[in-house]
């Protein structure tokens, strides 16, 4: 159901979508029943001359069951909703499948920046790739992310992945995602983080392994003697610009 409104591009997007559908069906049924009942009663018992009001306290057993039976059914529906909800939650947030790759996601006012291992495959080495506003990942690869914040509370959200996690200053929060559809998707910040909150956009680009390898090679900068103390220059390059400019238009 959700996919009608937004692409699903990660493995767990469908879990959430099915959960959404389940709830929509159950609560939709109850909403229609209750609203229908109400409007029917309003019509049926509209004021008419010569018809007296019935004196009902609501303590009568034969009438009370009209409340107690739906009541029990509501509890049953709650259980039907809560069990899969917890399962979805458990599988997304509480357990992490083994990682193929790791990325570091850093929020600051008002940009997302990313650090991932260069061609050597090891994080925190000289050939790490640091990007701003744009994250390149391989399709069908399980990523673990380490989420941090440099200043205030941000929230790392990729709607197409159905991924959302707050970034807290002073902590590193881990999570995972596994993109399964090539393309380029929005990254939002969904926690008020100052005047630029509504402008804190990023892109996540899901590539085929070949494209990703080419990108890695093109953008990693081996350590340059004499410049080792300095951060490597921006690697975003023109690709990032093009995307952002497109979005502007």
């Amino acid at each position: 159901m959700l996919e009608r409104y937004l692409t699903a591009a990660s493995t767990y997007a469908h879990w959430i979508d099915y959960q959404f559908l389940l709830i929509a069906v159950l609560v939709g049924f109850w909403l229609i029943v209750a609203e229908g009942m109400m409007f029917w009663l309003i019509f049926k018992f509209r004021a008419r001359d010569g018809r007296a009001t019935q004196y009902i306290t609501g303590e009568e057993t034969h009438l009370k069951r009209w409340i107690t039976i739906p009541h029990i059914l509501v509890i049953l529906c709650d259980i039907v909703i809560i069990v899969p909800a917890i399962l979805v939650w458990y599988n997304i947030k509480q357990v992490m499948p083994p990682a193929d790759e790791t990325v570091r996601v850093i929020g600051q006012q008002w940009a997302w920046s990313f650090q991932q291992a260069g061609p050597d495959g090891v994080m925190d080495t000289a050939d790490d790739i640091r990007t701003v506003g744009e994250l390149h990942v391989k399709v069908n690869t399980t990523y673990h992310f380490e989420l941090m914040s440099r200043d205030v509370v941000h929230s790392f959200a990729v709607p197409s992945f159905r991924l959302k996690q707050d970034a807290l200053p002073g902590r590193t929060i881990s999570g995972w995602f596994r993109p399964n559809r090539v393309g380029s998707y929005d990254i939002q910040c969904t926690q008020m983080c100052g005047i630029g909150h509504g402008l804190m956009a990023g892109r996540i680009i899901v590539e085929t392994p070949q494209d990703h390898a080419a990108w890695l090679l093109h953008n990693s900068t081996p350590a340059v003697a004499g410049q080792q103390a300095l951060p490597s220059p921006s690697t975003v390059g023109m690709d990032g610009l093009a995307t952002m400019a497109e979005v502007r238009r």
Binding site: V132, G133, R150, G196
Partner: peptide, 16 residues
């Protein structure tokens, strides 16, 4: 758009 340009990262969204 540099990883360490904290002020620039605040300026860029505002002019956008």
């Amino acid at each position: 758009m540099h990883f360490n340009d904290v002020e620039g990262m605040r300026m860029r969204p505002m002019v956008l």
